[in-house]
Design a protein around this nucleic acid. Structure first.
Length: 874
RNA sequence: GGGCGAGUAGCUCAACGGAAGAGCGCCUGCCUUACACGCAGGAGGUCACAGGUUCAACACCUGUCUCGCCCACCA
């Protein structure tokens, strides 16, 4: 056995163990395991680095995978990365510019080549970081969403949906991002509150000396107005419906239409209708057969249809229009107005709704099975409340705009022949089925990144081919991710799984919280409040970080993370480290006994009882994915039960030597063995390292059997005896501390006790003496009370700590009075309860009995305290 | 405008309807030969507010307030 450093030093062993595990093939699912357990990683963007959010997400997954692996499952954690269309394209562009190249001047294939080069050089960063975290992914199965196999899956899916009529192309109003120069889906639009202005503009009525005033936040879009609408039952405008209005500035004629969509309460009750630049107006326009005019182009500049404003930026145009309206007296008023505007979730630019020709997926038919899956319990959410969010979205689903005007991504697998016929295929080859033409041109656009992500649970396993992996590992067991991508990813994966595999891709969705800073703000690069996990791992250890993250994360609530909190994990690792050093120190040179807790010693019997509890608790926590409770339970057991009590008690037997020492050594090892196995899924490195320094008789911890409660014998009487022992110990320590007995000084103690307390104290005399630092211990049913002593009541017994020469009578009196007061208060409230007739009649008998018992105990204690106090008053 | 979540010790969070807990911080002692990343002891809480259900409520119900998310076609 090699030496162990004095303190936990993770740098010394983390990378070494990761290499050992990987070389040992332990990240691969065991071929012989009958039951599979699969998790597919939410593929991080290739552009990204590891964030604290990733740490939480992947620590949870790794904990589950390692736990199942130890249980003997064929555990597969399938890793990979997402090509992240827009994000990557932007990063590559910036990179090119930084290198003095001009991305705008590049042709498509040159750009894509550059993007791949960038990906090969930089795309592995986050994967390397996951390894530092200890993620036990099967790297031999790593996938990338642009891998050939996954491309094949994308084309196949597109083809199937196209043939089913669920994919269509058409000119509709879509969210156009001027910043990213592409259409984006509804889900990619975020809403940001803005303090804006509401402009009231007068539209003269043709042939009358009247005008209809409309309210708008976007005066520039009036250039594209094709109607004004009012509510059909709005009396203010009843006589005007059907008449013609004159659009200010451009003097175009507009019908005044009636539509129930209009809110009579808002503004003037009249709304300008711009089908070309507003989703509601687009709908309204269709209903009324109105034309639509696009006055803003893809760059955000006014088109030729904007007349004199053509070529201006939309915002510049807004200002000029307002000026012009003022000048002509058609601007009635301007009010401050707070509202939400849609912005691109990628670049934050205000989204410009525009009409353009795009590809869409018809979602309703796909949503049905996904809805049923949740409603019928085949897909379950943890926490449950997210199910409602999922269902609500699916019930109100809108078609999915899947085409993106980018270069980086899966190119839309549609080809057009020279005669305009369409065909879906991966590569152009065969002649056109309709005209025989061989001149094909592929659609210019690429697919939304999520169009490959939604296939992830099966495309990564080989689909559309029927591979062994697909057969064995699909469906996966659990998906671990954040609630922010329920719509983008989770729901769509369920839809795809149902549609293409005929089965849900997973049965449990664990949605953990977001990581925030200590002020509750979202972690983000721009705020600069997101610490670099790698730096934290470097300074505190991966295990410390992992443990802390889990400990801080109650199921499904956001985590407020601060660097200081990692100390909990680091200190805990150090504690274990030193417990192991203690064990080794006591094992000495000779051959060590096999770990075991079979002796008749109270400490061993009690530890078995505790292990029984903690093992079943850990199991339950993992089953229910309550990771914070899991971490807390193991922490409390290891620190408080094992280190504070068991090891302290073991010192007595170790000092005694002989058989008792051998038994203690076996027990110390057995306790550590259980703790290390329980903790391995959370803290893989330090547990593995510690285990390697101890003669536990096991192979690598990573494939050691998960500890079962049934390995340990329950022992209620040991628990009870231990309680007596610890209560006596604490009472004595308390007196010592409050009476300022120097820690180094052992005190004489007299215990006036009979029955259980006397029996336990006598049997555990050696333990008690050691734990409470006692010089001489006298136990009897009625020993004489020592002259100078402080006392305490423990159950039905009295403890006297001799304090010759150092007793401070005043101190002791006030100490006893405090105790007495506490007991009397409790006695009073308990008596009151028992005086209540309803309580006696209606409460459960055992509750009543325990209250009565409580009174008896309190009364006896109060008597004793009173007597002790009286003795001091003399 | 809907929906969801949270409001418990200075801070971050626990607590099957039956005497309010942990970690950090704080106070007092201790370098007690595993650990000062530690040991022992201690202080600190009208469990957001108001009603109600119950013998009994931090927990269940109703309402209110505050904070935070998500969804939504009031321009």
């Amino acid at each position: 056995m090699s030496e162990m450093a004095k303190a936990y030093d993770p740098k010394e062993f983390e990378s070494r163990w990761y290499e050992t595990w990987e070389k040992g093939g332990h990240f691969r699912p065991r071929p012989e395991a009958s039951k599979p357990y699969t998790i597919v990683i939410p593929p991080p963007n290739v552009t990204g680095g590891l964030t604290i959010g990733h740490v939480l997400n992947n620590t949870i997954q790794d904990t589950l995978i390692r736990w199942r692996r130890m249980q003997g499952f064929g555990a597969l954690w399938l890793p990979g990365t997402d090509h992240a269309g827009i994000a990557t394209q932007n990063v590559v562009k910036r990179d090119l510019e930084a290198r003095g190249l001009d991305p705008a001047g590049m042709d498509r294939s040159a750009f894509i080549a550059e993007a791949w080069r960038w990906k090969e050089a930089n795309g592995g960063k986050i994967i390397r970081q996951l390894r530092l975290l200890g993620a036990s992914c099967d790297w031999e199965r790593e996938r990338f969403t642009l891998d050939p196999g996954l491309t094949e899956a994308v084309v196949e899916v597109f083809r199937r949906l196209y043939e089913k009529g669920l994919i269509y192309r058409g000119a509709y109003l879509v969210n156009w991002c001027i910043g990213c120069q592409t259409a984006i889906s509804d889900e990619e639009v975020e809403y940001a509150d803005r303090d804006d202005r509401l402009y009231y503009v007068k539209y003269p009525v043709m042939g009358l000396d009247r005008a209809v005033t409309v309210a708008t936040t976007r005066p520039e879009t009036m250039l594209g107005d094709t109607a004004v609408a009012v509510h059909p039952e709005d009396e203010r405008y009843a006589d005007l419906v059907g008449r013609t209005l004159v659009l200010p500035i451009l003097h175009r004629e507009l019908p005044l239409v009636a539509d129930t969509m209009v809110d009579r309460e808002f503004g003037t009750g009249a709304v300008k209708v711009t089908p070309g630049h507003d989703p509601n107006d687009f709908e309204l326009g269709r209903r009324h057969g109105l034309p639509s005019i696009s006055v803003i182009d893809r760059m955000g500049r006014m088109t030729s249809d904007a007349g004199p404003f053509a070529g201006q930026d939309r915002l510049e145009c807004r200002g000029q229009i307002v000026e012009e309206l003022k000048r002509t007296g058609l601007l009635e008023k301007v009010e401050p107005y707070a509202h939400a505007v849609g912005v691109c979730y990628r670049c934050g630019t205000v989204v410009e709704p525009s009409i353009s020709t795009q590809w869409f997926v018809k979602m309703k038919p796909l949503a049905e099975p996904a809805l049923a899956a949740a409603r019928e319990g085949r897909v379950r959410f943890i926490p449950e409340r997210w199910e409602k969010v999922y269902i609500h979205w699916l019930e109100n689903i809108r078609d999915w705009c899947i085409s993106r005007q980018l270069w980086w991504g899966h190119r839309i697998p549609v080809w057009y022949c020279e005669n305009g016929h369409e065909a879906v295929r991966g590569e152009q080859s065969a002649p056109c089925g309709k005209c025989g033409s061989r001149q094909w041109r592929q659609d210019e656009d690429v697919l939304d990144t999520w169009f490959s992500s939604w296939l992830w649970p099966f495309s990564t396993l080989g689909w559309p081919e029927k591979t062994e992996d697909l057969e064995r590992f699909y469906p996966t067991q659990v998906l671990v991710t954040g609630p922010d991508i329920i719509f983008f990813w989770v729901a769509r994966m369920v839809m795809a799984g149902c549609e293409f595999m005929g089965e849900e891709p997973f049965h449990t969705v664990h949605l953990h919280g977001l990581v925030r800073d200590e002020g509750g703000r979202k972690m983000s690069k721009s705020l600069g409040n997101s610490p670099d996990p790698i730096d934290l791992i470097d300074r505190y250890g991966a295990d410390a970080l992992r443990f802390t993250m889990l400990m801080l994360t109650p199921t499904g609530t956001d985590v407020l993370f601060g660097e200081k909190k990692i100390e909990v994990g680091r200190n805990f690792a150090n504690k274990l480290w030193n417990a192991a050093r203690f064990a080794r120190m006591n094992l000495g040179e000779g051959s060590a006994p096999a770990p075991g807790l079979g002796s008749a010693d109270l400490a061993d019997r009690w530890l078995q009882d505790r292990l029984r509890h903690v093992c079943s608790e850990a199991e339950e926590c993992l089953e229910q994915m309550r990771f914070n409770d899991l971490a807390r339970a193991i922490y409390a057991f290891a620190w408080n039960d094992y280190c504070d009590w068991y090891l302290e008690m073991a010192k007595v037997r170790l000092a005694a030597g002989g058989t008792r020492a051998e038994e203690a050594k076996a027990g110390v090892l057995a306790g550590l063995d259980a703790i290390l196995r329980l903790l391995h899924p959370i803290m893989p490195f330090v547990t593995e390292e510690i285990a390697s320094h101890l003669p536990l008789g096991r192979g690598p911890l990573i494939v050691s059997p998960w500890p079962l409660a049934t390995e340990y014998r329950p022992d209620a009487s040991a628990a009870e005896e231990f309680a007596v022992l610890s209560e006596l110990t604490v009472a004595i320590r308390n007196i010592r501390s409050e009476m300022n007995v120097p820690p180094a000084r052992n005190a004489d103690v007299t215990l006036r006790a009979s029955g259980e307390v006397a029996r336990v104290a006598d049997a555990q005399r050696a333990h008690l003496i050691s734990l409470a630092r006692i010089a001489r211990l006298e136990i009897g049913p009625n020993p004489s009370k020592p002259r100078h002593s402080a006392s305490a009541v423990v159950r039905d017994s009295e403890v006297f700590v001799h304090l010759e020469g150092i007793i401070d009578l005043d101190l002791e009196r006030s100490r006893l009075r405090r105790e007495l007061e506490k007991s009397e208060k409790m006695l009073e409230s308990t008596r009151r309860k028992l005086a209540n007739q309803d309580f006696l009649e209606k409460a459960k008998p055992e509750v009543v009995e325990s209250e009565k018992e409580k009174v008896r105990g309190l009364e006896a204690g109060i008597d004793k305290l009173g007597a002790a106090l009286a003795a001091l008053e003399e």
